[in-house]
Design a protein around this nucleic acid. Structure first.
Lengths: 209, 209, 209, 209
DNA sequence: CATGAATGAGTTTTCATTCAT
DNA sequence: TATGAATGAAAACTCATTCAT
């Protein structure tokens, strides 16, 4: 169902066209939102007729679903990078925060992701895709944290899951921060983000519990 | 434009009607989203004709703007409560986390707030209102933290602002968590949320910096 | 489901509007066929906006369904007339042939009925409505023929039904004749139609069987 | 425009291709109707690309026109069979009724013929072709009936024409019967069809006139 | 103050047809 | 000869908004 319904003579061209549409749609959704962007605009941006898009996607909805799936795949490879990097895991994660902030506050992404999230509230298919993606991310993170290089081998599952939720909340919340405070000091934020993340990655002091 | 353009003979009735509409609209937006809910549905929920709504609000957009403003006022009074409560501020804030998690993961609100946030990406008026509200919240929080009862009198403005951003990001991010993980353990999450918040409220250890 | 979904404040006006639409649609379907006539044309003919039609009919399909139901009701009252008329039934039916030919070869109706019939081939709802109407007509006719005033009290059900089918086929076929032979001699046709109908109404001679 | 505009290098191949298209189109029109069947479906059924069809037919309309013409030719040869058969003409025609009922109530054909007939109401070219075909059929039938083996040599032209019209109406009407009464007893119907046809083929008794 | 009938621009989607290869 | 990618002009339907009553 992903891309292989063979009605296209030239699969390479088809893939190119699908990508044109996906990029154009992402672009338009960022600017105008899912509902705000019409097929007309998307088709103009993609450099092809509106009708032709329907040779590659069954509906407008199918387009945003594809975008989500594409994002999901990116995200998966991101976690693999973490696992592959040598060195202390906590340090790796803390050091990747700069990049993480950048990614989550990137103006381009913010609109698109919020769009997806709010669409999820009323579109079950989209909700399900996003949830699937998130579940995957949580699983990967859990594997890292309780793995042999992880810092939380001793912690209970419930505690680890709570930590993951809060980490994800903290990072995901940055999406909103950029909307709510456009003047956000993206560098300065690390002053507080690093200690908080460290707290979430390392065992709690007894008194803290 | 806020609420006072007095073209209404009976201002009290007008205010009642405005509220009916606001509540009905909030209700509908929660269920169906801003775009999903039509004026017809809103008017039925509000118990008045669609046309009549336009005697109180210039447009559908004006309705959501009013809802935001109303939320803003609620939020302001929330901060005042914090300031008014006696006792150690850090403790008060930590203790209010239970309630805060509840508020941010409440299924009802999530849709509405995400709706507003994603609408903000394409609607400057809404963006500006939300930002105004957020700025206010940050200011109030800053006042608390560096005030005489606060724990961060010694910290630099940049650091305090960073802490606030991360706190807000962490709490606001919960909105997304509920969408992305409907099975979210709302109680368990506090296991990690409290230590992280404590880190953000208390001076950092030297080594942490 | 017929007309009573109470969302209209003024039922009389609503009925008027429904009729405007029904008449306009019938008119357009006659001229251009079901697929050929667009909502734009129908709305212009009905003297109201296209969008407004949807306050009275859920879809274009619902419109043709209503037209069919209306025709069905006309047809029912037609049979009642036959039953109510005094005198010899065979004579009544034979005498009504003139009028029957007129009705079935009427240019206005032909297009609309053919339209419905060919739409029935691919639209189950319409097929079902037409079949329901036809079943009713056959039942009424059977009642007349085997009733106390009928000429076929002695005949087997299968024979009576066969007669009815052929009668209906012969009359219904006139719809097609007018299309296939526009120069059709509507008066002359009775020269042959009367004897054929008489054969179908009276007991067969032994040799005929 | 009929078939001979020789722009094709290999006329035999061209004829093969035309037939492929014609058969495929007939097949599709039967299943989905003229409007319901798309060129894409037809081309797939015909085993050639959509674009290529336009090398053999100027338009979708031209295809149905060709189908009609082909049907017309079949019909002509049918009448020739009648003429060629030895024996009493009335008996031949009555005996052919079984087969005739079968042909007219055949589920496959019904959709296609109704499709053509209702298309005729709005498409002059098609109407004209069908009328031409019908005229031919009437002429052939008239020749048979007033010919030396015919039973109506003594009848007036008007009467003969009326008889033919009614016969055709009765047989053609069967198309509609099958749509309106899917449970139609195809064998039983002959009980009434044969006497009615006999009446139409033999001189009327005086009293009948 | 209040209604809801009416509008019309805007939406996604379909499909016969063309044309570069 | 043959392909199928590409077009664009429709189509049915929705909905915020207006206005006569």
């Amino acid at each position: 169902m992903t891309a292989k319904t063979k009605k296209h003579a030239d699969p390479a061209l088809a893939e190119t066209r699908r990508n044109q549409v996906l990029c154009a749609a992402a672009e338009c959704f960022k600017r105008k939102g899912y509902h705000g962007a019409g097929m007309a605009e998307i088709s103009k941006t993609a450099g092809m007729s509106a009708g032709h898009i329907y040779n590659y996607f069954a509906s407008k909805e199918a387009i945003i679903e594809s975008i989500i799936q594409r994002d999901m795949e990116e995200m998966i490879s991101l976690f693999q990078e973490f696992g592959d990097k040598p060195g202390d895991l906590t340090t790796i994660l803390i050091d990747s925060l700069d990049e993480g902030v950048e990614r989550h506050t990137n103006t381009d992404c913010k609109a698109l992701h919020l769009e997806m999230l709010s669409e999820a509230a009323r579109n079950d298919k989209i909700a399900s895709l996003l949830q699937q993606s998130d579940t995957h991310a949580r699983n990967e993170m859990r594997k890292l944290l309780i793995g042999e290089r992880g810092s939380l081998q001793a912690a209970s599952t419930r505690e680890v899951d709570a930590r993951i939720e809060v980490m994800f909340s903290m990072m995901g919340g940055l999406l909103l921060r950029r909307v709510l405070n456009p003047a956000l000091d993206k560098t300065g934020i690390l002053i507080a983000l690093r200690p908080a993340m460290k707290t979430l990655l390392l065992p709690f002091d007894d008194k803290e519990k």
